[in-house]
């Protein structure tokens, strides 16, 4: 249709237009893009700060900034309160950000008046390399972002308890159980390590013969001893305690009266995830309590 030269010129014009349009698009979206980049980077700074906090600060100020008796005061809300107090009583003139930054960088060589009646073993050391500490300036900034985020991002969520759930692991050694606490757990007077109440009694009654969803647990200690000797028993338990433990952590290991208590072939109506809410101590206490039900 066109000769080579014309085609080339058309092609170059299109490319040039495309370039100009691209630059125009970048221009129009540049403000938003920069703001977004800033937000992303701030998020990463907070992540870095959190890791540094865990590594360097948590031993004295607690994993969630709640403080450690004898070692360091709480930071959340400690720093924020201390700052307000300084501003109101001493006309402290620096910004909150700088207050935090300076404290981390240069440490607290002498005891401040805040939480004056508490005793801490050591003064807060210097952290910035500028003052002989281990951290680079950018790391100090990251820590500041993390600490500010306790308030900047709204109320701190109730801490998700970080505990080692027993899960389905039957080999994990258990500490000695306390039947009193086990009973309190059963009655939902104390919470499991996950922070949630134990849900056992929603499905199990302690009245003999009463079936809610699962069987009554009255006399379970005696029954457990019989179960493990039953010919069709195919679990691993050797003792009544082990039998109760297995039933809680791995309900599918052996299902009593499957036509009554199985949701599907081989799957018990009892959820297999109860162990994810319990620490080893919770489990031991519950077992100890159930073992009192002769």
């Amino acid at each position: 249709m066109f000769d080579l030269a014309t085609r080339r010129i058309i092609g170059a014009t299109v490319l040039m237009l495309a370039t100009v349009i691209t630059i125009g698009m970048v221009w129009l979206t540049e403000e938003q893009r920069m703001a977004r980049y800033e937000a992303i980077h701030k998020g990463k700074a907070i992540e870095n700060g959190a890791l540094l906090y865990e590594q360097y600060c948590a031993t004295c100020h607690g994993p969630n900034g709640e403080g450690v008796p004898g070692k360091g005061p709480d930071l959340n809300p400690g720093v924020f309160q201390h700052y307000q107090e300084l501003k109101q009583t001493q006309n402290y003139a620096n910004s909150l950000r700088n207050f935090i930054k300076l404290t981390i960088a240069a440490g607290r060589p002498i005891r401040s008046t805040y939480r004056a009646n508490e005793v801490y073993a050591d003064p807060m050391p210097t952290w910035s390399q500028d003052f002989g500490g281990p951290l680079r300036p950018d790391q100090i900034e990251n820590l500041v972002e993390f600490i500010l985020n306790w308030q900047a991002a709204g109320p701190t969520p109730a801490p998700t308890p970080s505990f080692e759930a027993v899960g389905t692991d039957l080999t994990k050694p258990l500490p000695p159980g306390d039947p009193k606490r086990g009973e309190a757990l059963w009655n939902q007077e104390v919470k499991q390590a996950s922070g949630a109440a134990a849900s056992c009694k929603a499905c199990h009654s302690l009245k003999p013969g009463e079936v809610l969803v699962g069987p009554s647990l009255a006399g379970i200690a005696t029954r457990a001893a019989e179960r493990i000797r039953a010919p069709d028993y195919k679990g691993q338990a050797k003792t009544p305690e082990e039998y109760i433990r297995e039933s809680i952590q791995q309900p599918n290991a052996y299902i009593v009266e499957p036509d009554k208590y199985a949701a599907a072939p081989g799957v018990s109506k009892m959820p297999a995830t109860l162990g994810n809410q319990m620490s080893a101590q919770d489990l031991a206490d519950l077992i100890a309590f159930l073992m009192t039900l002769k």
């Binding site: 998020g43 907070i46 992540e47 959190a50 994993p63 969630n64 993390f146 985020n149 306790w150 991002a153 709204g154 109320p155 701190t156 969520p157 801490p159 998700t160 308890p161 970080s162 080692e164 759930a165 899960g167």
Partner: peptide
């Protein structure tokens, strides 16, 4: 593997 996810601040989670 055991995975713990917890929320440590508003908008910040820890993944272990």
């Amino acid at each position: 593997a055991i995975v713990h996810i917890s929320e440590v601040q508003a908008g910040l989670k820890r993944f272990e």
